[in-house]
Amino acid sequence: MKIIVSGGTGRVGRFVVGDLVAAGHEVRVMARSAPPAGTLPGGVAVVTGSLDPDLDQTAVFDGMDGFVHAALDHLPERYRGGEGDDPNGFRHRNLDGSIALFEAARRAGVRRVVFLSSRAAYGTQAPGRVLDETVVAHPDTVYGQVKHAAERALDMLGGDRFIGVSLRATGVYGTAAAGLPHKWSGLIGDYLAGTAIAPRVATEVHGRDLAAAVRLLLQADAADLADRLFNVSDLVLDRHDLLAIVRDATGCPHPLPEPADASALNVMSTRRLAGLGWQAGGRALLEETVAALPEVRGATRS
């Protein structure tokens, strides 16, 4: 397939690009400007594009079979709260801009779209409730509202010749691009420095597993995509357990945070995605990834 990926140089999008290239697909990345040399795998073309609803960007999609929309215009390192003090501008760029890209892709003859949404689209739910894709969404942040509205817009645009699928992702972890921090850089650095760590538990999925889910949705038979919404998640991860891996790898003597109470956590069901053949890496992939993080590799065991 010929696939264009928006946000393909970002923390999540780069996993998608790498996976698609490794699987033999021809990949084009849409970006506002050319990334530094070495950011993308060899052979990946870069075309100029943006989340600007006032532009007709149909030509960007010429010749493409699939579109993965992973771009988000937000404050650095912030998704929830990424609108800062400009919620209207955030909505205009990320909702209206996304809809404009979906429409442009359809005009250009793209047959399959995968939109990278978020568990934030579910919003506040009953404590401890398992979230499957039939749960009624109550997004209570600007970010969640924008993601949910974009899902609905894509679904309304869809048809037999233009299939749009939304993938609600939980927190994504993994190694970062060279020279950039990963999501746990600050946390692990604080632990190794002896800073007290507050308890917290959350759901996580490796970027590699998310990318595999995206590829699966791009390649699946249309008959298997009657449901146009899928969750992607893997681990319930407590900071206590994450930092225990760091401690065991480095010999760090500092105390671990207390385990958090996970009873109210809303875990996302991935049964629908698993029905298409998706499998997550689980604890083994977590341990492999943490061992490869620069803070862990660089620490000396006592």
Rank of each mutant, 00 (worst) to 15 (best):
178 A>T: 14
209 D>Q: 14
160 D>H: 04
243 L>N: 07
8 G>Q: 13
222 A>Y: 10
134 T>F: 03
166 S>D: 10
1 M>D: 10
208 R>A: 15
89 G>R: 04
38 G>Y: 13
25 H>I: 11
138 H>R: 14
117 S>T: 11
160 D>Q: 09
10 G>Y: 02
22 A>M: 02
292 A>E: 12
90 F>E: 03
164 G>M: 09
264 A>F: 03
169 A>E: 07
191 Y>K: 09
237 L>M: 10
153 A>F: 07
46 V>P: 02
162 F>V: 12
206 H>K: 12
262 A>I: 12
99 I>V: 15
33 S>H: 13
237 L>V: 13
194 G>N: 13
104 A>T: 12
69 H>E: 01
28 R>T: 15
174 G>W: 08
98 S>D: 02
248 D>R: 11
139 P>Q: 02
130 V>W: 07
232 V>A: 11
95 L>T: 12
197 I>G: 12
273 L>H: 08
65 D>L: 00
178 A>R: 15
32 R>A: 08
215 R>G: 05
127 P>T: 13
133 E>A: 02
290 V>F: 04
177 A>T: 13
230 F>R: 14
159 G>M: 06
89 G>L: 02
117 S>P: 03
15 F>G: 04
178 A>I: 07
3 I>V: 15
187 L>W: 06
36 P>L: 00
177 A>Y: 04
248 D>I: 00
244 A>G: 07
73 D>W: 02
115 F>A: 11
259 P>Q: 09
5 V>K: 04
83 E>H: 11
10 G>A: 06
27 V>L: 00
254 H>K: 08
207 G>C: 09
153 A>T: 10
40 L>S: 04
157 L>G: 10
141 T>Y: 05
134 T>S: 15
290 V>T: 07
78 R>P: 00
159 G>F: 06
197 I>L: 08
39 T>E: 00
74 H>F: 00
213 A>E: 04
180 L>A: 15
295 E>V: 12
182 H>I: 04
202 A>H: 07
124 T>Q: 04
274 A>M: 14
257 P>D: 01
188 I>Q: 12
301 R>H: 12
254 H>L: 05
217 L>K: 11
295 E>D: 14
123 G>Q: 03
25 H>F: 09
72 L>C: 04
17 V>I: 08
165 V>K: 05
280 A>C: 11
60 V>L: 14
32 R>V: 10
279 Q>D: 05
282 G>H: 08
122 Y>G: 10
11 R>E: 08
264 A>L: 01
